[in-house]
Nucleic acid binder design. Sequence first.
RNA 1: CGGGGUAUGGCUCAAUUGGCUAGAGCACCUGGUUUGGGACCAGGGGAUUGUGGGUUCAAGUCCCACUACCCCGACCA
Length: 412
Amino acid sequence: MQYSNLFGKTTKNVQADADSANAKLLTQGGFVDQEMAGVYTWLPLGLNVLRKVEQIVREEMNALGALEVFMPSLQPKEYWEKTKRWENVDILFKIKSQTEKDYALGCSHEEVVTPLVQKFIHSYKELPLAVYQINTKFRDELRAKSGVLRGREFRMKDMYSFHTTQEDLNNFYQRTLQAYVKVFSRCGIEVKVVQASGGIFTSNISHEFQAITPAGEDVLLACEKCSFGQNIEVATVKEGDACPQCGGKIIKTKGIEVGNIFDLGTKYSDSFKFEVNNAEGKTQRLIMGCYGIGTSRLVGAVVETFHDEKGIIWPKSVAPYQVHLVSLGADENVQVEAEKLYNQLLEKGIEVLWDDRDASAGAKLADADLIGVPTRLVISKKTLADDSVELKERNKNEAEMIKISELMEKLK
RNA sequence: CGGGGUAUGGCUCAAUUGGCUAGAGCACCUGGUUUGGGACCAGGGGAUUGUGGGUUCAAGUCCCACUACCCCGACCA
């Protein structure tokens, strides 16, 4: 992508009263644009990142054997009345059609997925089953805040699993827990796996996945070494204790909840009377689990975790581009060589952003730092005098000169 | 939803006790000079100040209502 063709650009002027790093940097870098409180457009640069994150999630869910579907966000009131959530969930957006019919905008999809699976599955032989989607969710938050961390409309992966036995659910639940840790780790984020109260289903298991950062909303007591953590509100460990899992030191810290998994028990299969035949030919109520990852929030969490005073520092796995090619100076030869190099990188299948603008060196370099692509290549009269380009990793201080002839090998 | 703050070109802000044609920076357009850390010169377009009322000879400025956004809190299946 040539920067001059990109839609959305960097700006020096950012809203002074917004304070979260992700809101500032994603806006300033041209990744997102705020439409209203808690609602954002994902511009091409930001969409690249969001898609990288969602692809990682997709791959790990597929690896679990889960199947991707895409369910409607527009949902009939009747389903929500069956589960008693029409009146009880205050963050549910409710809308009326011109004929005065009531609909919900999905804040979650239990009410859709349960009757959906019920239509197709009638035998224990077809279970277990896990389906997931990556979709837009709507929540009527009283206070949207912190950029993309708490929105009213946001992206989420939600998965639902169906089982005939508790053992089967427990097994899948544990495998999903491990898959989640892997998803976050692939995005560059180490999480604490926090046993949670389970919301309204207090008797059942629930885990939160907390990305550790000072920007977090939740206060945790967590192990320095391993993934053990507890929400401070329900913690049984204290600061300075030994970790019950690994013996490491327990510290107080803050986290962003980037994922949450629940054992739903029969709550929803009860509401919809979802039963299948078991091996004895008798009907059996299903046990369900649900598993969420806020993918747009995860992008925000990555920014909160990886930035400095100059801008974002994307991990390679979710970076909008792998290489940021910066051509400096109006020298014609520089332009020619830069274009050659750009095409060479494209041919090699390397995702490259070429800053081909007629802008000053300072402006281009500052923008490169702000946008935060992992590898920066500078090509200028100076580097060409030595048949070289300058290579600098965004997360390192030193740059090195590389012969152009050796560059492709180096980028492998 | 409670508390606090803000609302002025596309963006960030300024405008004296209410008083002359609402200014600047960024961005944008034209021409020129520049090119390794957010360059410079000259010229130019773009606002009737969130919305609706009110006070006044006169309102961006004062008063009332509403709306939106930001921050703190509560909330967060």
